[in-house]
């Protein structure tokens, strides 16, 4: 025979648990974003535009990034990796520096970019600039790997060069993640002439959307 006090205790516990057990988490709207997708011309039946989305698939993570070891650029890129990685809740993207450029998914050079290629995303700040080339390999559904980014000082020895390189490295890294357009808001890191030191809510919303939007483009190579 179970004593009444024990039954009462058990019943109280069950009642408490039942009373409390009625809540589900509510996810945020994440509507704050700019368009990140690549718009390309194609002419299979006359010139047309296509809007394409890219994000690194999980089986390609961590993305291997080779960085030219000059002006402490590897440190700036590491900071950029931490910034973008921290913006994503579920480990959607990760990057790691590698020593062999032959095995890299992304190559970051400290030099001016070569002559214009068809798709170049350029960012410019007062004392340094950057550019990222996107090569869709003829068929617009492929992204040629390694993706190449260029960062270079425009005013060598400028007092704010370190901060400029930090901002531009994070900005170009954003392009290599799949943000293939610039934001129209000057406060965003992905604005074409960025001054932001951190990601804004719009930057975070955009990268979050990009990594949960079905990708049309897939990395090819190396």
């Amino acid at each position: 025979m179970i004593p009444r006090s024990r039954l009462l205790l058990g019943a109280t516990f069950v009642a408490l648990a039942a009373a409390l057990a009625c809540s589900d988490m509510v996810s945020p709207t994440r509507g704050t974003r700019y368009d990140w997708r690549l718009i390309v011309d194609y002419d299979s039946a006359g010139p047309r535009l296509d809007t394409l989305s890219f994000h690194w698939p999980r089986n390609r993570l961590p993305v291997r990034i080779w960085v030219e070891d000059s002006l402490e650029l590897p440190s700036r890129v590491r900071e950029g990796i931490a910034l973008w990685k921290g913006a994503l809740l579920y480990g959607e993207w990760d990057g790691v520096l590698v020593s062999d450029s032959a095995t890299a998914d992304v190559i970051v050079r400290l030099t001016q970019p070569p002559p214009q290629i068809p798709i170049r995303l350029a960012g410019r700040v007062l004392s340094c600039s950057g550019a990222t080339d996107v090569d869709t390999v003829g068929t617009r559904f492929e992204l040629a790997v390694p993706v190449r980014a260029y960062i270079f000082p425009t005013i060598p020895g400028a007092a704010d060069l370190t901060q400029c390189l930090r901002t531009v490295a994070a900005h170009e890294l954003g392009h290599t993640l799949g943000l293939f357009q610039h934001s129209s808001d000057s406060l965003d890191l992905m604005f074409s002439e960025p001054t932001a030191r951190f990601l804004t809510e719009r930057d975070v919303g955009t990268i979050t959307n990009a990594y949960h939007f079905t990708a049309d483009m897939f990395p090819v190579g190396p």
Partner: peptide, 9 residues
Amino acid sequence: SSGFGRTQD
């Protein structure tokens, strides 16, 4: 801080 509301049982 990411804007989730309420809690999950």
